[in-house]
Amino acid sequence: MAVSVAGRRIGRRELLGALVAAVLINLIGALGVPFTTPDSAWFQALEKPWFYPPGAAFGIVWPVLFSLMGIAAYLVYRRGLGERAVTVALGLFALQMALNVAWSPAFFAARELLLALGIIVVLWVLIVATIAAFARVDRRAAALLVPYLAWVTFAAVLNYSIWALN
């Protein structure tokens, strides 16, 4: 069985691979969830900027972004780990994922707003590097990371604003 996407036939194996990658990245991304405590008295007491989104937005946006990231990583991975460009791209991807997961404990558990800001700035740089590396392998994969970069840009501004206000 195959389906057609944008005029290109995609087989069951490719669809399954993309789905598994999306689920895997969502599971990795969820590692930070136990540390994320927006209902805590500490977080509630923080002054937040006027543009702070409703809490439900985070629970909607992150799974979508993690799914796009998983599909992007799969598109790169399927080119073959024997290619240096693929291993570099996936190495950068793994590094930025580690920083993504590290942000929540720094912000919520350690309550270190400035440390969290430093992490998210480095994360932003690594996402840009990952997009460039993915583009060398598969431009579609790079494009799938652009919404993630946009959201992390917003999150960095939000993190900075919370730090500055408090």
Rank of each mutant, 00 (worst) to 15 (best):
W163Y: 13
I71N: 13
L19N: 10
P105H: 01
W103D: 08
L144D: 14
F108M: 02
L65S: 03
F154H: 09
G91D: 09
A98T: 03
S4A: 09
T130S: 05
E83I: 02
A30I: 03
L114M: 09
R78C: 02
V3R: 11
W151H: 07
L149C: 06
L19V: 07
V76C: 12
I127T: 05
G29A: 07
V101S: 01
G82T: 01
W163H: 10
F66E: 11
P147Y: 12
L19I: 04
V125K: 06
R79M: 10
A141S: 08
A6F: 14
G118Y: 05
A129I: 02
E83F: 12
A2P: 11
V23H: 03
G80F: 03
G91K: 10
P63E: 07
P53Y: 14
I120S: 07
A18I: 00
T153G: 15
I28Y: 10
A133N: 04
R9D: 12
L27R: 01
A2T: 11
P38N: 04
L114H: 10
W50G: 10
W62I: 00
F107K: 01
P49E: 04
L15V: 06
A18F: 09
L99K: 03
R84E: 10
A89F: 00
P54V: 13
F43M: 04
F66Q: 09
V157R: 14
Q96R: 04
A135C: 06
L24G: 05
R111I: 01
W103T: 01
R84N: 05
S4M: 09
M1N: 14
I25R: 06
S104I: 02
F154W: 10
W50E: 07
A109V: 01
Q44D: 15
L19Q: 08
P53I: 00
R136C: 07
G55W: 05
V61A: 14
I60T: 07
L31G: 12
V23T: 07
F35E: 01
V146S: 12
L158V: 08
V146T: 11
I60S: 02
A132C: 06
D39Q: 15
T36D: 04
A135D: 15
R140P: 07
F58C: 01
V23R: 00
T153F: 12
L68F: 13
W124H: 06
G17P: 03
A2R: 12
A164I: 01
L68T: 05
N26S: 09
I28A: 11
A156I: 07
P105K: 00
L158R: 10
V3M: 08
G11L: 03
Y77S: 09
Y52D: 09
S67I: 02
L68K: 08
F108A: 04
I60Y: 12
A109S: 14
Y52H: 08
P49Y: 06
A143Q: 02
